[in-house]
Amino acid sequence: MTLTHPASLTLTPIAARVLATLMEKARTVPDSYPLSLNSLMLGCNQKSSREPVMDLSEADVAGALENLMALSLVRANTSGRVTRYEHNFQRGAGVPEQSAVLLGLLMLRGPQTAAELRLNTERWYRFADVSSVEGFLEELQERSPDKGGPLVIKLDRAPGAREQRWAHLLCGPVDAAQFAQSGSARGADGSPGTLARIEQLEAEVAQLKATVLELCSELGVSPPVPGVAQT
């Protein structure tokens, strides 16, 4: 099963990663938001909470930002010494907050079940239950053509899985059967575990590193070298 999506909102995988990273950091590290280009690049290249893992350069991120600004999905703030970027997804895409949160997580982590989405959105938005998550996903799937058409698709059940996963359509049509065959290493019930806690800690450490590098750059000092005592 393949669904199409209006070209006006079709993103490249890099643009989707940049946009979703801005959406994530606005929720999880508001004190460091909006983000500089360097902080945004580091966020995009995190090894945890990302599917797939990417290795983007500043040029890759800058190019994606230009495209996203042309679509009114990102804004640049040039009032300070360093240009900073913030997303405008909810208004640009014309979706409510809850739908924006779900789309952001799907762009960051790939296809997920409704239960996984409820767990993974905990730091972004607290859904009352899995049914409320499913309700917003169904609205996104049934979005009328005059509003731009569907933004998500419910995938075929993967072999051995108890629940079906959902995928976003912001990068264009997807092959639902192919995604289903790929399976998922995550538990179908979305229960929290050691891996989830490790991912959260790794994400927080990566953000702290980005903040330190940014502060060192603004102060004109060399960043600390891991394992070397500072004097």
Results as ranks from 00 to 15, higher is better:
Thr113His: 03
Gln98Val: 12
Cys44Gly: 11
Pro159Met: 07
Ala59Cys: 02
Ala62Glu: 15
Asn38Met: 10
Leu11Cys: 03
Gln90Lys: 11
Val29Ala: 15
Leu68Pro: 02
Glu97Ser: 11
Gln164Glu: 06
Leu108Lys: 08
Gly193Asn: 15
Leu213Trp: 10
Ile153Met: 09
Ser72Ala: 12
Met23His: 05
Arg91Gly: 10
Ala188Glu: 14
Ser131Trp: 07
Pro52Lys: 03
Leu37Ile: 09
Glu139Thr: 11
Ile14Ala: 11
Pro224Phe: 05
Leu40Glu: 09
Pro173Val: 00
Met1His: 13
Thr83Gln: 05
Arg162Phe: 06
Ala196Asp: 15
Gln230Arg: 12
Thr78Pro: 12
Gln46Asp: 15
Glu58Gln: 10
Arg84Thr: 15
Leu170Glu: 06
Val133Gly: 01
Ala59Pro: 01
Asp129Ile: 02
Phe179Met: 05
Ala7Trp: 12
Leu105Ile: 09
Ser144Ile: 07
Gln46Val: 13
Ala185Trp: 01
Thr10Leu: 09
Leu219Asn: 06
Arg123Pro: 02
Ser79Phe: 14
Ser132Pro: 00
Gly94Val: 00
Ser8Thr: 13
Pro150Phe: 05
Leu117Arg: 04
Leu201Met: 12
Glu142Tyr: 09
Pro223Ala: 13
Arg118Gln: 13
Leu137Cys: 03
Val212Ser: 04
Asn67Ile: 12
Leu22Pro: 01
Thr12Arg: 07
Gly190Phe: 10
Glu24Arg: 14
Leu73Arg: 08
Ser222Glu: 11
Leu102Val: 09
Ala76Cys: 01
Asp31Tyr: 04
Glu142Val: 00
Gly190Asp: 07
Glu199Leu: 03
Tyr85Glu: 05
Gly104Asn: 01
Ser57Lys: 02
Tyr33Pro: 00
Leu108His: 03
Trp124Ile: 09
Gln141Thr: 02
Leu213Ile: 07
Asn120Lys: 14
Pro52Gly: 00
Ala167Asn: 05
Gln178Thr: 12
Gly148Pro: 02
Leu42Val: 09
Ala167Tyr: 02
Ser39Ile: 01
Asp175Ile: 00
Leu105Phe: 03
Leu22Cys: 03
Leu35Ile: 00
Val29Ser: 07
